[in-house]
Every structure is written in C-alpha cells, then in structure tokens.
C-alpha cells in the first residue's frame, strides 16, 4: 500500500504561537529552525523560526499528517509558497497583543489567498487572555470585511485541546460529512 502524506500549514506573525501549537499536537518532538532574533522580533521573543517548524501526526504506518509552521517574519515569505504546496489547509494564528491584528489578518490572508481559495482557512486568536480587546466579535467583523469564510476560535497554543479544535474545524469545513471512525 502506498503511503499517504498530507500537510497542514500553520502561519501567522512572529510570536503568535505557531511553533508552540505544532508542539502541542505533534506526535514527535518538533523540529525547529530557530535563530536568535536579531531584528524587531527581539522585542517580542528571543528566538524565532527562520525556515520552518515541523511536526507530525502519525495515523498509521502509511498515513501521516505533516504539520509545518512558517517563519513569521514577512521577509521569509519566499518559504510560504514552498510550504503550502500539497497542503490541505491553513491555520492562521493571530496574536491579540500585537499592535494591529486586523492588519495581520489582512496581510496573511492576502499572502495565502490562492491557497485559501483552494483549501480552507481556520483562524486561532492567541493571547486574548492577556489582552481582551480586540474582541472575538471584532475578528468576526474583520473576517467578513475581508470575505474570509473561516472558523475563528480563541486559542491557547499550549493547550492541545485548543489546537485540536482548530484542526477539527478545518477538517469539518473541508468535509462537513466526515465522521470520526
């Protein structure tokens, strides 16, 4: 039997929790390409992903779901196209404590617009516990303004259940008839 490999991509700005989210759900210890931050990123965290993060969910010996995290900085956008090839969906993590989460939503949804049109987008809002505004209702309004048809959940990237919910909604949005077997 031939092996089945599928990809789910995690993207979003620096510090939104992409690496952590993959780590929360991955069956293996994730592989990170971290560097010491040397630019504006430093103001948010000391290390940052420069190429990609990689995690894996093994369903069987022949079935694997690969989890890729894109680097957050926009100057690494050349990696994004490479990472999304063959992906089944995109999980966009937005950090609520950043100065302009709407701008982030707009930027990333635009950057991945072709992929989103073909597949499915799910949005996870992180750090709402640290800063309650903008609210979930704001995010829904923004998504409507940007014509994004995506489930939007508040998540804590460290919580497996939260990351799991993002993936569940991704799968069910792609195929509402799917049931767990």
């Amino acid at each position: 039997m031939s092996a089945v490999n599928r990809k789910i991509i995690f993207t979003g700005p620096v510090g939104a929790g992409k690496t952590t989210a993959i780590e929360s759900i991955s069956d293996i210890g994730i592989i990170s390409t971290n560097e010491s931050a040397s630019d504006m990123t430093k103001s948010r965290k000391s290390n940052t992903t420069v190429a990609m993060d990689y995690g894996l969910i093994k369903l069987s010996n022949n079935e694997r779901v690969h989890l890729y995290g894109t680097p957050g900085q926009e100057r690494f956008d050349f990696m994004w196209d490479i990472l999304t090839k063959g992906g089944i969906g995109l999980i966009l993590l937005l950090d609520n404590t950043r100065p302009d989460p709407f701008r982030d939503m707009k930027f990333y949804s635009n950057s991945f617009r072709e992929f989103i049109a073909e597949q499915q987008l799910v949005i996870g809002v992180t750090r709402l516990d640290l800063q309650r505004s903008p609210t979930m209702q704001n995010y829904r309004q923004w998504a409507e303004e940007l014509s994004l048809d995506a489930p939007i959940f508040e998540v804590d990237a460290r919580v497996r259940e939260d990351v799991s919910m993002l993936i569940q909604s991704l799968l069910l949005s792609l195929d509402p008839g799917v049931i767990s077997t």
Partner: peptide
C-alpha cells in the same frame, strides 16, 4: 465528500 474523507475520519478520531 472530500477525496481525503478516509484520512480525515481517522485524523478526527485521533484528535477527539
């Protein structure tokens, strides 16, 4: 049904 329904089902089961 999505062409990946089988895999989706098994992935859902794993997650839930």
């Amino acid at each position: 049904p999505n062409k990946n329904r089988g895999l989706f089902s098994r992935l859902l089961k794993r997650l839930i």
